[in-house]
Design a binder for these strands. Structure first.
Lengths: 379, 379
DNA sequence: ATTCCGCGCTAAACCGGTTTGCTAAACCGG
DNA sequence: CCGGTTTAGCAAACCGGTTTAGCGCGGAAT
C-alpha cells in the first residue's frame, strides 16, 4: 500500500518488483501450488503493496469467456428497474446465473441505439425480453452465434423461446367477469413504446385476442372507447380509468393487461368514489408480488414471472456450456387467481344493453366524489 | 451467413477471406473513412457473411476501458431485484450511466464470495450500496484505485459517500406520532443479513437513533418487545406485527424502517381487524413509489432514492473521467410525508401509562377478527 | 523532371494477462 | 555415484483485437 504511482500497476511491475517472471506472478494468483510457498507469499505481498489487481478484461480475453449473462431489453434501464414485473423476471435470471457463477450485465439502448449496446456487451449469452422480431438487432446476435433465448417475443422460428399462455389467461379473465354478470367491460391495454409498431403477435396482441374471444363467445363486442391503452405504470392505469370516466363510459368491469396498471385503476376508482368490487370489478394480469396486498387484493391472471426468468437463464446457460445445443422452446401456463377485486355486477348498475355503450347523457364533468386527500405529499 | 464453421470467426479470418490486412478490417469497423469506400463495403460484406462480430473483450482491452459501471451489493441479486427500493436506486444509477453511454453490471456475491465477484468485474468504476465498512472487500477496490462511491454505508473516512439524513427523518416520523398523542409505540427494524453483525452506524442504526431521540424527548422509552426486527419484505412486516400482537402488545402507532415492511404491517393490521389509522397509525420509511397508492396511502419519510442513485452514478463517472478527482461526499435530505395511515390516537385506545407495556392480561390468542378471505389464491 | 503530398493500405508492436514447453537444480532410491 | 523424477521458475507464444509508423503510388505543384 506504499508506493502508489500515477498508473495502475500491471503484472510486469509486480514481476520486476518481486524479482520474478510474469509467469510466477500469474501463478501466485491462479495456481499458487505451482510455486514454492514462500515465493507465492512474497509475490502476493509485493502485489498488495503495489495495489495490484489483475485486469479482469485481460484475463477474460485469454479465457475466452466472461462468465457473464446479458439481459437484453429494448427499453431504457432508467425506466424499467422499478417495474415489478421486470424486477421479478430479473430475479429469476439472477437465480439461474448465480448457481453457475455467472454475473449479470444489462444490455439496453446506449444513446438510443441497441445495436451499439450489443456491440459493447461482454457476455457469453443473452436473454432477450420483450424484444420484437422486428428488432433487427437480434439478427446481429444470432448470426454471431451467441447463445440467445427470447422471452415474450413474437417467436422467431429457429430461436429458443420462453413464453406464457397469454391468450388462455386473458380468456379466463374475461370469462370470469362474464360469469359474474358483467356486460359493460373496459379493456386497458399496454401502450407500445413510441416508434415501435404495435405487434399483433406480441404479448399485448395475444392478451387482447384472449379477451376478445371470450367476449365474442358471449356475444359481446367492445364499443368505441372501451379499449384504451396506456403506459404500463400506476399512473397509466389511473389515467386510463379517469379518461374513460370523463368520456362518459360506465363499465362495471375492467380487464387490465398488467397488474401495475390495475393498481392505478384501483386507485383511480377509489378517487372516483367507486367501491371495488361493489361498483367496479377489476382484473389484472401478471400477478406481481404486491397484487395480493393491494386493497382490495387483486384478482389477476398469474404468470410465473420468476420461473420464466429462471427458465430462460438455465436455457441459455445450457447453450453456453455446450450441453443442449438445440434446446426446445418452453411455454408456461397462466391461471386466474380470484381475489377480492371482482364480484357480481351490482343490481342497480345492471344495464339492459349487453354492450358498453357511451352514455353521454349522464356524463359528469370532473370526479363525482374527488378524494380530498388525494395522495399528494402534504409535507 | 453462408459458410459457418464450428468456431466463431476472428478478425484474421475476415482479413484472409477479404484479401486484406487485419488493420483494414479494423478500420472497416471503426474508421471507415480511412478506407476506400468500396473496400470498406466489401470487407463488411465478407464480415457479415462470416457472421463476424468483433470481440468486445479484446476491444476493451486495447481501449483500456469498459465503459461499464458496477453496482456492488452484498446481497444476492436473486433476492434484491424485486425490492422496490433497490429498483428505484438502480434507476437513478442507470440514468446517470445512460447519459454517458455507460452500461451497468451488477456485482454481487458469486458462490457466496463477494471477493470473487469483484475480481471478475469488468468495470471502470463502482457504486457500492449497503456495503458496510467491515466488508473488507471494499479495501480491494480502494487499494486498486478503482473509482468508488459508497452509498448508505458507515462512511469510510476518505471515500466519497452518498447518504441521507436518516436520523432526522426518523426523528420527524417519531415526533409526528407523538404529536398525534401516541405513547404506545412499536418500532420495526430491518434485520441485518445473517452473518453480518448489526452496525450501529449503518442505516438501521441511524434510523433507530432518530426514533429513540424523539421518544426520549417525550420521556418515552421503548419497552421490551416493542422493538422487533424483520427482513425488509412485505412478509417480514406482516410477521412483525402479528408476532407483536401475539405477544400481547397493543401499540397504537408503529414506526417501520422501510415502506416495504410498512405495507406488510398495513396488511397484517387489516387481517387483525384493525382500522388504519383509527386503531393503528403506521409510518414507513423510504417513500417508494407504491406508498402513495397503498390503502390507506402511507405516511412515510421520504428519501430521494432515485436521486441518490443518480448522484452516486454521476460522482463515480466524474471520477472515471478524471474530472473531479477528489469529490466530496453528499448528504441528501429526508422529509416526512403525511398521508393517511396516521391519525390521532383513538379515545378508547388511549392509555394512561406513557410506555408501551406488555399487557398480557388482555392477551388474545389468534386473530380477533381474522379476515376470512385471507388473500390466498383461490383458483 | 523532380519534389511533395495525400491516399489506401499493411506489417508489426501493443494491450495485460495466461499457458505451454522447457531448463536447471534438487531429490531419491539402488 | 548414477539415471530418473520432481520441483521451481522462466521465455515465448498466444488470446483477438487496435494503433503506430511507414510504404508505394499517382497526381499536383514547382
Amino acid at each position: 500500500m506504499e508506493e502508489r504511482t500515477g498508473r495502475r500497476p500491471r503484472i510486469a511491475d509486480v514481476a520486476r518488483e518481486a524479482g520474478v517472471s510474469k509467469t510466477a506472478v500469474s501463478f501466485a494468483f491462479n495456481r499458487p501450488s505451482r510455486l514454492a510457498p514462500e515465493t507465492a507469499i512474497r509475490i502476493r505481498t509485493v502485489a498488495d503493496s503495489l495495489g495490484y489487481r489483475p485486469d479482469p478484461v485481460a484475463r477474460m480475453l485469454t479465457q475466452r469467456s466472461t462468465r457473464t449473462l446479458g439481459v437484453l431489453t429494448p427499453q431504457a434501464l432508467s425506466v424499467i428497474f422499478s417495474n415489478p414485473f421486470f424486477g421479478a423476471f430479473s430475479e429469476g435470471v439472477a437465480l439461474a446465473a448465480e448457481q453457475e457463477g455467472f454475473a449479470l450485465d444489462f444490455i439496453s439502448p446506449l444513446h438510443g441505439s441497441l445495436t451499439r449496446a450489443i456491440e459493447r456487451a461482454m457476455v457469453d449469452g443473452v436473454v432477450a425480453i420483450g424484444v420484437s422480431a422486428q428488432h433487427g438487432e437480434v439478427e446481429q446476435l444470432r448470426v454471431a452465434g451467441l447463445p440467445l433465448v427470447m422471452v415474450d417475443s413474437s417467436a422467431l422460428p429457429d430461436l429458443p423461446t420462453i413464453e406464457v399462455d397469454d391468450e388462455a389467461g386473458a380468456f379466463a379473465a374475461a370469462q370470469h367477469l362474464l360469469a359474474l354478470g358483467h356486460r359493460d367491460i373496459l379493456v386497458v391495454g399496454i401502450e407500445s413504446t413510441p416508434g415501435t409498431p404495435p405487434e399483433p403477435d406480441g404479448v399485448g396482441g395475444r392478451r387482447a385476442r384472449g379477451y376478445r374471444k371470450a367476449l365474442a363467445g358471449a356475444g359481446i363486442e367492445l364499443m368505441r372507447g372501451a379499449y384504451v391503452v396506456a403506459p404500463s405504470t400506476i399512473e397509466g392505469g389511473m389515467a386510463a380509468l379517469r379518461r374513460t370516466w370523463e368520456d362518459g363510459l360506465r363499465p362495471t368491469g375492467v380487464l387490465v393487461m398488467s397488474d401495475v396498471m390495475a393498481i392505478g385503476v384501483l386507485r383511480a376508482a377509489r378517487e372516483l368514489g367507486l367501491r371495488v368490487p361493489a361498483d367496479l370489478s377489476v382484473v389484472g394480469f401478471d400477478d406481481i408480488d404486491i397484487s395480493q396486498h393491494t386493497h382490495p387484493p387483486l384478482t389477476t391472471v398469474h404468470q410465473p414471472i420468476r420461473l420464466k426468468g429462471e427458465t430462460a437463464g438455465r436455457l441459455v446457460l445450457a447453450m453456453i456450456e455446450g450441453r443442449d445445443p438445440r434446446p426446445a422452446s418452453v411455454r408456461l401456463d397462466t391461471r386466474l387467481i380470484i381475489r377480492e377485486s371482482t364480484g357480481p355486477v351490482a343490481r342497480s348498475a345492471k344495464r339492459t344493453d349487453a354492450t358498453c355503450r357511451p352514455v353521454r347523457l349522464q356524463r359528469t364533468s370532473g370526479h363525482p366524489n374527488p378524494n380530498p386527500r388525494g395522495g399528494q405529499p402534504t409535507a
